[in-house]
Structures are given as structure tokens and as C-alpha cells.
Design a protein around this nucleic acid. Sequence first.
RNA 1: GGGGAAUUAGCUCAGUUGGCUAGAGCGUUUGGCUGGCAGCCAAGAGGUCAUCGGUUCGAGCCCGAUAUUCUCCA
Length: 872
Amino acid sequence: MNSIQIRQAFLDFFSSKQHFVANSAPMVIKNDPTLMFTNAGMNQFKDIFLGNSPANHLRIANSQKCLRVSGKHNDLEEVGHDTYHHTMFEMLGNWSFGDYFKKEAIAWGWELLTEVYGLEKNRLYVTVFGGDKADGLEPDNEAYDYWKAFVSEDRILYGSKKDNFWEMGEIGPCGPCSEIHIDLRDEDERQAMPGKDLVNNDHPQVVEIWNLVFIQFNRMNNGELKSLPAKHVDTGMGFERLCMALQGKKSNYDTDVFQPYIQKLAEMTGISYGSGKMTDVAMRVVSDHLRAVAFAIADGELPSNNKAGYVIRRILRRAIRYGYTFLEFREPFVHKLLPVMVENMGKAFPELTAQQDLISRVIAEEETTFLRTLSVGIHKFDQYLAAHPEKKVVDGQFAFELFDTYGFPIDLTRLMAREQGWEVDMEGFAAGMEAQKTRSRAAGTIETGDWVELKPATAETLFLGYDQLEAEVELIKYRRVSSKGKTYYQLVFDKTPFYAESGGQVGDRGVLESGDTKIHISDTQKENNLVVHIAEKIPQQMPSHFLAKVDGRKRQLTANNHTATHLLHAALREVLGHHVQQKGSLVNEERLRFDFSHFSRMTQEEIEKVEQIVNARIRENISQEEHREMEMAEAQNMGAMALFGEKYGDKVRVISFDKKFSTELCGGTHVHSTGQIGLFRIVSEGAIAAGIRRVEAITGADAERFVNEKIKELDAIRSLLRNPKDTVHAVEQLLEQNESLRKKLDAAQKDQAGQLVEEMAAKTEKIGGVNFIGQLVEMDAKMAKDLAFAIKNKVDNLFLVLGHAIDGKPGIVVMISENLVKERNLHAGNIVRNLAAHIQGGGGGQPFFATAGGKNPAGLDKVISEARKLLV
RNA sequence: GGGGAAUUAGCUCAGUUGGCUAGAGCGUUUGGCUGGCAGCCAAGAGGUCAUCGGUUCGAGCCCGAUAUUCUCCA
């Protein structure tokens, strides 16, 4: 079976057991401060396990794309060095939410592996939870007994709490798990040592392929375990490992999941896989990382310099680094593997196919910039070597600077050093790294207080803000949060008219009133599905009931901009084409920002066209059409476009302004009819990444002000030009005139300067065989300097002292011909310093030319006379 | 969120304890030479050294703020 068939067989199998086949959730997570990426199949069902949301299907099966770059068993720096670690991987899972339990999960698991996939039974082992005294838990004999029906008892092993008891976190749902392991070793090895001794022993060919978790407890705050009324099944099977097992390979990278990339790399480099240790590692690294990065970009996460975007950048750069060092790539190459990936996975993951062009460009762009970073680093490194030729050891601090400031990888520094017979002081490097980490940690500490719970939460906070801006609300819980000396409070209510920041729209501001008590809410945010109201100050005695009032003006202005964003989106697609897709959006009370996929600069005509369309739609005063709870399928039939990387429930909210023009899935707040927006103006257009452009625009009174200011400005110019018929032409003429006058003036000044030089030259005195000129002139330092150089070209054997003053600021210029400098060992710098004493100043310069400035113009005469004396 | 850096000609970059009339290569313009393969020679244009403020007699260089970009850590 190839990998595509293997994935399909899994989904088909569980579909035949009445499972709903769900799509993979986005790999990049939004609205969860604790998690940046999906790292397990269960992430998208977290709210169901926590009891925050009900399950829409009791049985679900899916393949979930996951990403892990750090954690207990995952270190990015190790991926590629062995045969089984990955950053991005697929997790096949089947789920029961309060429906079937251990019996079916075990029976179906066995059936799928042995009958559908046809794995040899004598290679399989299963583990069950062996009990734990501290938690007062018995061994999971229930699971043991179910397994007994299929597996001989010498293949059922008891496992420890570490291996066979699964917990989501410190507290929350948890339970025993049962794992299926497979022994993939050759016959003779299996004879030599039984596989059961290698289970859970980090043997690369005796591996866990499937973990069945039976969630039956809830871990309470005090550590106690409480039995759950609804028991769940959560299973996860590593897709890449399964492929290895089914295809009879010894390494995940030998399966058709990875080989296409590896073969392509071999073709590109002329190096065959298997021919060298480090070239093999590099090929594995590149093929693994390509998948991770491509999926992340497809989900809307671009390489950048912080948070999730930074993780993506690091992964991609690691791939480039290995390609650069071991495969000798000097030009962007990773993006050239993308077509192979789309061919392999495009069917199962349509987001790849749809955005292939964009992903390719983003990767290529990042490759180019990183190769540039590398060349800057190499340059710095060479300079360092040249500056310390005898050292033979690269300073740790410098190596760290290269890494920290210029992004130059430490292993490359070491490699280059070794090539020159140098060492790198790794201790110094580590010290710099440690200091950096300490600094960051100290700055990033957030102190979160315990929730003060007034009332048990029964459901998610109900949002009332679509219909009303004021409401009676009840406080559920609140807590204090401090970071870096700033303290604020988070408040959660049973219901609220406040809109929490999401979908690009900023959170609401407003006030809570209870009797005489007023609490100002400065922002409203979402943590997963929790709506959190932010207050800087709260009273000592917290009331439980409030009248919550949203700042209506801010809300209205924000709604103007949000609706305008929808109109803009539709207009862009009309003008530029259907490849335009939203890639990011910010909507607040001042302006809107819209990022979208498009590959070239918008022309002035295109921008105007878009503005015209949007403004026409505003004048049509189209009424908002809202569907608050629509089936996803129905919404898509209406033409509403789902965004890649966005997570949607089964029921979605659909907002249309003229169904044929703009229909979007959106949770934001909008105007009732477009006329309220008044006016729409684009104020900027530019690129933010390869293939992604950003438009910023304003609406309403802000747009009006913007236009008025432009008109005022033009009026002012026109009136300065005495209201010409053609303003542009008038300005052009003015500029031309100005240019020609400037040239004339230049010529005249040159002429004058020439005369001045002549005059000065005529005042040459022969003193001691030297052409001495000592004069006072009325000009500034710059002019005096120019004059001095001009005279120098005219008079040889020159000793020139100019005393200049303008606006009461005196200065001195000393110029001495080079021959005199040499013959008489003169130094203009020293001379000018001495002379400057007479004008209460200081100065300096080179041997042949020096300047000084001072405070006392009256001393200038003395300067000249003293200068003359120097030659006598 | 915190740290480090960069910003000089159209492009790529030099510019060494503040003394600079700010340079190089490539590109560009003009002229001359040359029988071609990115030909050679000469001359020229092109810079408010990111912006604003400060220190200083004097700032591309030192200090502070801002903007933009790069980079590392969380």
C-alpha cells in the first residue's frame, strides 16, 4: 500500500464503523496563549474533553497534521539525525465522546491493523496500564481482558504510569492508555532477542504505533482522581510510522512519505541517498522541514521574527543550513521540492494545492534572505580572522555576536574555523547564550493569580453584542495578572455585550456599572473560548451584578471599518482576480488593514477602481444580511469562503452585503447598512512578504478629513502660484526655472570665487622663502575651507592663514603646501591649535590642512600677526 | 515581551581613538580607440552619510529619541 491508500483505508475503516470523518484542524493555533501549534490529534477536541463545548458527533475519525519542535522527546536539532523523529507529522485518530469505550476501541484497533492492513500478528505487542499506588489505581485489567481475546498473554505487557497513563496537564481529564507496539527487526535479530524486552526501550525498530487513551478520570486541583460520568476514547497513530511498518521499511524516511523528496534532492545534487552519513542527514532534514514549513504557510503562518512565525523561520533556515553545508546548495532550493509535495499530499490537503504558488514564493524569498544573511556572516567572520591573524581561537563572545546579531549559525562558524585550522571558544559562546536566555526570561515573567470564582460556569459566555450595547451581566470569575510592574484584572461574565478581539477586529472598550461603582474595561480578549474583560482597576468589594455598557462610538467606527474590509475584499477579487485571498486583517476605530495574496504591485488605476467599487457599494446603502447559525455546507453553497488556517465550528455566522457581491464567514460586528460608512479611501498599498500585499484604508469622517486636507494643500499651492490654469504644468515650469537659476548662480559664484582667489593670491608675501598669505575674510567655515583649497591649487610653497568670521562666530583655516610640511616639519593641526587660543577656541586637523573655531572674533588680528611670526 | 545590530551614490559595500573638499567596484552618461566572445582608455553625472535633537571649535564617526530593516532569546 502506498501512503495515500494507507491514510484512506484508515478513514474508510472508521467511517464504516459510523464515525464522522473530520477535516484536519489548522496546524497553527490562534487564541490559545499556551500553545502555538497543534501538537496532538486531540487539540481540536480539547473543549469537548474539558466540558466547555458539547460534541456534535459522538464518533469521529481524522488525520490531523501536527507540529512539534520542542518538548520531552522532540528537539529540533535532532530531527534528521535518526530515522524516526519529525517536526511535522500526521496523527491518525478515532474518537468516542461518551459513546463506545475500551471494548470497541481495542477490537477495532486490532481488526484494522491485522485484517485491513494485514500486519503480522507475531510482530505486535500491546501494553496496558499496570496500576499506580500513589494514585490508588489498580492495573487496567478491563483492557487486559479485552486484549486477551485477540492476543496471546505473553504479548500483553503491563506498563508504568509514565508510559501508560495519559494526562493533558496538571489538572483535567486523564486516564489509562493501551499502546500497540510493533517489532520490525529482521528474523535473526528477533530470534536472538525477544521483542517484548525491547518495548518502550527507544529501539528504532521496536516502536509504538498506536496509543489508545481511555479517558475516565478528572484530575482535581488537590491531585485526587474523580471518575467521569462520560468516558471518552482518544487514539493516536503515527501515520509515518504506520507507513514504515506496512511498507516493510526500517526508517520512516524510507517510505513513500519522504522518499520522493529525498530522490528529488538526490537528482538535484547528484548525490545518492545512502552514500554518506551527513548527506543523508541533510536530505532527511530538508524533506522533513519542507513539509512542516509548507503546511504552516498554507495555514497562514509566514516566517517572521517572533512567535509562531519565528518557529517556522527557524525550521526553514535549518533546512537551508543543512542543504548549504552538506549538499553544497548556494542557490534557493527548498521551494523546488514543493511540486513533489503537492503531488504527494495535495489531494488529502487541498490547502496545499490551492496555495502552491504562494507557498513556493514565500519559501524562495526566505531562502534568498537567509543565504544573504549567511554571506554577511561569512564576511564578518573573514574580517575577524584578518584582524586577529595569530589568534587561532575564535572568541566565544564574537561567535555569539555572529549568531545573536547576524543570525549566523554556530555550527557554520565552527566549520569555517576548522577549515582554517582554528578553534571556537564554545564555553564563551554558551555563556553568551545563557545570559541572553536569563535576560529574556526575566523580562517575560507574567504572574497570574488564582481565579476568584463567584459562580460555577455552566456554558461559554453568551455574546449579546450583535443586538445590544448594554446588558445586565453577572460576574462568574476574575483574577489579577501582573507582568513587569503592570497589574490588571481579567473578568469573566455569564453573558456580555463586549466584543472580544478576534478575526482582526479589536476588542470593545466600555464601562461596568453597579450602584456607585464604575469599572472601566480597557479591552476585551479571547483565550480559546473564554471571553476575558480587562480592567486596570477594580474595587475592593467586587459586586456580582453589573450593567455593562460598550463604548458605542468606538464600536460604530470599528464597524464602519469592518464592513468596509468586506467590501474591499470583494472589490479586490473583482479587480485583481479570484486568487486574492485574505491573509490577515486588522480592524479598529481608526483604520483598517488588509493583507491578501497577490503577486504584483497594484497600479494606480487598480487602486482607483477598487475605491470606486467600494464607494459605489456604500452609496447603494446595502442592508446587512446576517445568518447567525448556519450549517457550514449551506454557507459554502451561498458562496461564503472559508479561510485557510481558520478554525470553524459546524455552525457558522454568515454576513452578506448583497449576496452576489460580498458573503463572508465572520463573527465581527458590522454596520446595518453600508451608507453609514460614508466614504472609503485607500491610504497605502505595499508588500509585506513574497506574494502578499497590504492595503490600508480609512472610512467615514477620517476619510473625509483626509480628502479635505489634500484639497486644502492643493488650494494652498494653487494660490501661491496665483491660481494657474494647469497647476502641474506651473510647478514643472517653476522647477525648470529654479534649476536653470541654480546653474547660473553656481557659475557666478565660481566666477566670484575665482576672483577672490586671484585677489588673495595677489596678497602673497614672501617671508623666509615661503609664500605667506594671512587675511581676514567675511564668510563661514565652509566657504573659507573651499577658498583655502582653491588658493592651494593656485599658489605653491604656500603657508595660508585665513581668519574668518560671520555672525560673531570666528574661525581659522591653516593650509600648508605638502613640500613645506615635509621640509620644515610643520603641522597645521598644531599651529591652528595654538592660534585658536587667541579667539578662545580649539581646533585641529591634518599636517597640511587644519581648522579651528572660537568665541572671540576680536582676536583674529592677533591670529594673523602671530602666524606671520612663525615664519620669521 | 526583552536583548543585539544595520541604515553612506541606482546596486553591493569601504570609511580605522571625531579633523573628509565622503570613497571603491558594478551600473549609468559622454567622447575616443577596437574586427567579435560582458573589449579598452578618458572624462562626467549621481550623496541634506535614515530622520530629529544634543555634545564639540569641528560629527558619516560620540550621546539621546524616532522610523525602517535584520537578528537572537522568551
